[in-house]
Simulated scan of single mutants.
Amino acid sequence: MLSGLQRPLVFLDAHWGPDWPLAGELTALRTGAAVAVIDDFQIGHPRFGYDTYDGQVCGPQLVTEVLPDLERMFVGNIEADYPLPCLQTGRRSGTGIIAFGLDGGHSPLTGHPWFVEVPLRPHPVLPPWISAGVSQ
């Protein structure tokens, strides 16, 4: 489906029902150059929800299991000064971002104020959010 595209952006939000396709989707994407955005992702902040399926959290630990060679990923920086307001009301959800095969190992997300790098090896390390104790 992605053939012919140089750097597709793939939004992964099929998190319901008995068949959870996320592991297969990530496995399929890992051989190309793409940016995967995973919705309902655990980012380590109590104000931002995430999904769990059959005891498996939609978060960095799942990514390390599915993509054992991946060294890092990113999450949306909830403390960034975005140019547009957040339109999510009630439950907000975290977002995980993986840049596959881009820029010879240097991701365009590195150093960008809207993203926070999450090292995955030797184990995932989520950001220590400054606002974790503050109601947002």
Rank of each mutant, 00 (worst) to 15 (best):
Q42K: 13
G55N: 08
P108K: 12
L109K: 15
L102R: 11
F115Y: 15
P46T: 02
E65L: 02
F41E: 01
F48K: 08
D103N: 15
G111K: 14
T64D: 03
V35W: 13
P119E: 05
P113Q: 07
T95C: 04
L84W: 12
A132E: 02
I38E: 00
Q56T: 15
G44M: 03
A132H: 14
I38D: 02
A99D: 15
P68W: 06
D39I: 00
Y50F: 13
H112W: 09
G44Q: 01
H112V: 05
P68K: 02
R92I: 04
P68R: 03
S93N: 09
G101W: 04
V37R: 04
H45C: 00
L126W: 03
P113T: 09
V75E: 04
G76E: 08
H123N: 07
I98G: 07
G59E: 05
D51F: 09
W129K: 07
G94Q: 10
P127L: 11
W129I: 01
T110E: 15
L84T: 12
V63D: 03
A132P: 03
L62K: 06
P119S: 11
V116S: 04
V75I: 12
T95W: 00
T95D: 06
C86F: 06
T52L: 00
L109Q: 13
L87Y: 01
I97S: 14
L87K: 00
V125A: 08
Y50V: 02
C86N: 11
Q61F: 03
G101T: 02
H45I: 00
R121W: 08
Q88I: 04
Q61L: 15
I130S: 13
P108N: 11
L84M: 10
A99L: 10
D69E: 04
P108R: 12
Q88H: 06
P68V: 00
H45E: 01
I130E: 13
R47N: 14
S93D: 05
I78P: 09
L67D: 06
G96C: 05
P46S: 12
V37E: 04
L70R: 13
V75Q: 06
G55W: 07
Q56F: 05
R47A: 13
P128S: 13
